[in-house]
């Protein structure tokens, strides 16, 4: 990741340039992805949540995949307890992002309480793509603020819009949930063979378990598709070596 030379890192012009690049990245992702709150708001109301419930979920949970997962279970009439568990487990990746970001952001005290809420896919992606700590922090916070505002505002608009639309399925809104995940996952699937094998195994596990287990459980079970990397020391060590600069 640290590709910047010592002399460039020391110059004010270089610092300013990298921070404005981080600002652009952050605003682009924040506003671009934030607009898909429209899809969430519409999907939530389509599934049977009230407008207030959809907005509360976006304000408090603020992690798209978990929100879509809970809404999916509500819409399919699954057990709410299992659906909640599945949605929270899906948010487990944010804990892993937090582990990664703690060293990069170095937030202390009460500020950690606020920063934690915006540790999600997009902020992690922008922060870890920056060449130095200062621009990583800029990228993280710019993405966080623009995405939080856009996501919550468009959730409200989408929820109000869908509640006025007769049959949202007629507009193809039920396709938006899986399409959002597919678009977010795409760069990783096209990048690595291990990623594609884990993805294929996860899809087989989830689809195979769907007729047998309560809604929400098959998705949780699919996390097992990533387990083989724990059992293969060679592979893990090699992947680690490739990450070294």
């Amino acid at each position: 990741m640290m590709t910047v030379t010592e002399s460039d890192a020391g110059s004010d012009a270089g610092t300013a340039r990298r921070r404005s690049a981080a600002l652009r990245d952050g605003l682009g992702v924040g506003l671009g992805v934030g607009v898909s709150g429209l899809a969430f708001g519409a999907a939530a109301v389509t599934a049977g949540l009230s407008v207030a419930q959809a907005c509360t979920l976006s304000l408090v949970a603020f992690t798209g995949a978990s929100q879509f997962a809970l809404v999916g279970v509500v819409g399919s009439g699954g057990a709410l307890a299992t659906g909640t568990l599945g949605a929270v487990l899906l948010g487990g990746r944010n804990a892993l992002y937090g582990l990664r970001l703690a060293d990069l952001l170095r937030v202390r005290g009460w500020r950690r309480l606020a920063a934690a809420q915006v540790v999600i896919d997009e902020t992690t992606a922008v922060a870890t793509a920056q060449p130095d700590r200062a621009s990583a922090r800029t990228g993280f916070y710019v993405t966080a603020v623009s995405l939080y505002l856009a996501w919550n505002l468009t959730t409200l608009v989408g929820a109000l819009g869908a509640s006025r639309v007769g049959d949202p399925a007629a507009f193809g809104l039920d396709t938006l949930g899986p399409a959002v995940f597919l678009a977010l996952l795409w760069p990783r699937l096209s990048a690595g063979g291990t990623e594609r094998r884990v993805a294929a195994a996860a899809a087989v596990i989830a689809v195979g378990a769907t007729p047998l287990l309560p809604s929400g459980v098959p998705v949780m079970l699919a996390a097992a598709a990533a387990l083989p990397v724990l059992l293969r020391p060679g592979r893990g060590a090699r992947a680690d070596a490739e990450e070294q600069p």
Partner: peptide
């Protein structure tokens, strides 16, 4: 590596389901 791959597994499972 495991931590890195869990989101791939969970998101693909969601898409499939």
């Amino acid at each position: 590596r495991f931590a890195d791959l869990v989101p791939v597994a969970l998101l693909t499972a969601l898409i499939a389901v």
